[in-house]
Design a protein around this nucleic acid. Structure first.
Length: 190
DNA sequence: CACAAGATTGACT
DNA sequence: GTCAATCTTGTGT
C-alpha cells in the first residue's frame, strides 16, 4: 500500500500519476495484480461525460467521497468498470482504469477472462480480470479487495489525448496512455 | 410505472 | 465494418 495523498489532486493530474502503478485485487483468495497503462480522467459538473455531471445519486455517490475511494459501475449491463476517486470530498472526480498488463495471477485472470490474451486491455476486461463487481464500489483502496500496491518510481513516457471527439458525447476527456508499443485503438474516430 | 441511453466487448460478415 | 448482448440508472408521466 502506498501513500494515497497524491490522489487528492485534480483527476487529470492524479490520472497521470497512476500510469505505471500496480493495482492488486484479492477475490476468492486469488490474487491478481495489474500494471496500469491506460487511464482516463473525469470531473464533475464541468464534464458532460461524467456520471456526476447532473445529480448526486446512489450510483455516483462514491465520486463525492474521499480520494482513494473505489467507484465501480455497470457498463452496458455486462461489464464492471473500475474508477479511483480523486480530488477533495464533495468535489466529484474520478479516474477510470481503462487498460493494464497483468503481472501477477495471470492464470487466474485467464480463467476469469476465458481468453489467453487481451486480459485487461479495456475497462470491462480489466474489471473482469481483477474479479471486481459492484460490491466493491464505495470501498477504499486497501480497505477492501482492491489495493494500490505501488506507484511508478519514475513516470513512464505517456501520451495525452485531451478532448477526443469534441462536440460528440465525450466533450472533455483526458485520456492518458503509456507509450510502450501503442496497441490501443481509438474508441471512435480511429 | 415506462422508457431511452450508456465511460463496452466480442462475434460475425 | 457492423451489430447484438444485457441491465442499471435517470428522467418523465
Amino acid at each position: 500500500m502506498v501513500d494515497l495523498s497524491f490522489l487528492e489532486q485534480d483527476s487529470p493530474v492524479a490520472a497521470v500519476a497512476l500510469l505505471g502503478a500496480v493495482v492488486t485485487s484479492t477475490v476468492d483468495g486469488e490474487r491478481v495484480s495489474v500494471l496500469l497503462n491506460e487511464v482516463e480522467a473525469y470531473l464533475g459538473p464541468d464534464d458532460p461525460a461524467s456520471h456526476a455531471f447532473r445529480a448526486r445519486t446512489a450510483r455516483n455517490e462514491p465520486m463525492f467521497g474521499l480520494a482513494g475511494t473505489i467507484y465501480v459501475y455497470r457498463s452496458y449491463g455486462i461489464h464492471w468498470c473500475i474508477n479511483i476517486v480523486t480530488g477533495l470530498r464533495n468535489d466529484p472526480q474520478a479516474v477510470l482504469l481503462r487498460g493494464a498488463d497483468v503481472i501477477e495471477g495471470t492464470d487466474v485472470a485467464i480463467e476469469r477472462r476465458r481468453r489467453t490474451d487481451h486480459l485487461a486491455d479495456g475497462p470491462g476486461k480489466l474489471g473482469q480480470a481483477l474479479g471486481v463487481t459492484g460490491a466493491v464500489s464505495g470501498t477504499r483502496l486497501g480497505a477492501g479487495p482492491v489495493a494500490l500496491v505501488s506507484c511508478a518510481d519514475t513516470l513512464p513516457p505517456y501520451e495525452a489525448t485531451p478532448r477526443v471527439g469534441v462536440g460528440a458525447a465525450h466533450n472533455r476527456r483526458w485520456r492518458f496512455v503509456t507509450k510502450k508499443g501503442t496497441k490501443h485503438r481509438a474508441p471512435n474516430t480511429g
